[in-house]
């Protein structure tokens, strides 16, 4: 009996030691950032990024639960929840259900809160945003005018001194329409740029997508607007897959390859057929010989 008591005591001590060492594992600091995006004056969404510093290097934190709020963190202000991806990013679209609260004010504050996990304490980040939009106009000689407007006193008013980019959308990135990288809006909220990208392939009708945008603006967040213009060259996809090439589909192998291959196959299998016929001949000779 005494022996069992000792075993029980050791088990409890080992368990306690394990618990103490586990609970004493230091937690890492979680860095949260929050950004507001207005895509083409149509989609508004929030993007949070979670990262941590390990061995003096930032590493993204995937798989952490994040909760987004409009204003303070309370259930009635909930915008949505998301889990961070491999890049530490989590995105929540601003739902139509908060339209009434959204329309009430020109300025909004957003909050994102991370879940309390064994590795990270609960962390919070906020973003204050003034509602804004961009308007694109195009004129003769491929001139582009973009106007930056903010919502103020129930009207859209131009904003001076906002940095903007004017670009044309390509497959993976935006290409500046000329050599100027950024423009600053004048007192009318306007920037003007000349389109100098000749012979850019567009869609089948030659349409290109122009983009005017601000990125990570402290007051307005990331706002962008797009407009289709027929300034590109019409792109017609020509498939070479049906040509007679080594990489074409089955029935399109090169004639020389077919002739050579089938020639060899017929010759060799002709010999094999001849040999099989010789077996037949041997049988006949055997019968007549007998």
């Amino acid at each position: 009996m005494r022996k069992y008591n000792y075993i029980l005591l050791i088990t409890i001590l080992v368990g306690l030691a394990g618990h103490v060492s586990y609970s004493q594992t230091p937690k890492n600091d979680l860095n949260l950032s929050l950004g507001y995006y207005n895509d083409n004056n149509h989609f508004q969404y929030l993007k949070a990024n979670a990262k941590t510093k390990i061995d003096r290097k930032f590493q993204m934190v995937p798989g952490i639960s994040l909760t987004f709020y409009l204003g303070s963190e309370s259930p009635e202000n909930l915008l949505g929840r998301a889990i961070s991806d491999d890049k530490g990013d989590a995105v929540v679209f601003i739902p139509a259900s908060i339209k009434a609260a959204w329309d009430k004010s020109a300025k909004h504050s957003f909050t994102v809160v991370s879940a309390n996990t064994p590795l990270y304490d609960q962390t919070k980040a906020t973003a204050d945003v003034t509602r804004a939009k961009i308007k694109i106009d195009t004129g003769e000689d491929r001139k582009i005018t973009a106007t930056f407007l903010e919502w103020k006193d129930s009207a859209w008013v131009p904003v001076k001194g906002v940095d903007m980019k004017i670009a044309v959308r390509r497959l993976d990135a935006d290409l500046n329409v000329n050599e100027t990288a950024t423009y600053t809006t004048d007192s009318l909220g306007n920037v003007s740029a000349d389109f100098k990208r000749d012979s850019l392939p567009g869609d089948e009708k030659g349409n290109l997508i122009l983009v005017a945008k601000t990125e990570d603006n402290e007051t307005y967040g990331s706002v962008s607007s797009q407009k289709a213009v027929p300034w590109g060259t019409a792109f017609k996809y020509v498939s070479h897959f049906d040509k007679r090439t080594l990489f074409a589909r089955r029935g399109r192998s090169p004639i020389w390859l077919e002739l050579m291959a089938y020639g060899i196959i017929v010759a060799v299998w002709g010999v094999l057929f001849y040999l099989v016929m010789q077996i037949r001949k041997l049988k006949e000779l055997g019968v007549s010989g007998a």
């Binding site: 040999l275 010789q278 001949k281 041997l282 049988k283 000779l285 055997g286 019968v287 010989g289 007998a290």
Partner: peptide, 16 residues
Amino acid sequence: GFWKNTAKQIKVNKRA
């Protein structure tokens, strides 16, 4: 069973 070892058979077999 058909092999009778005749001269003709040997010739055909050798050629094959």
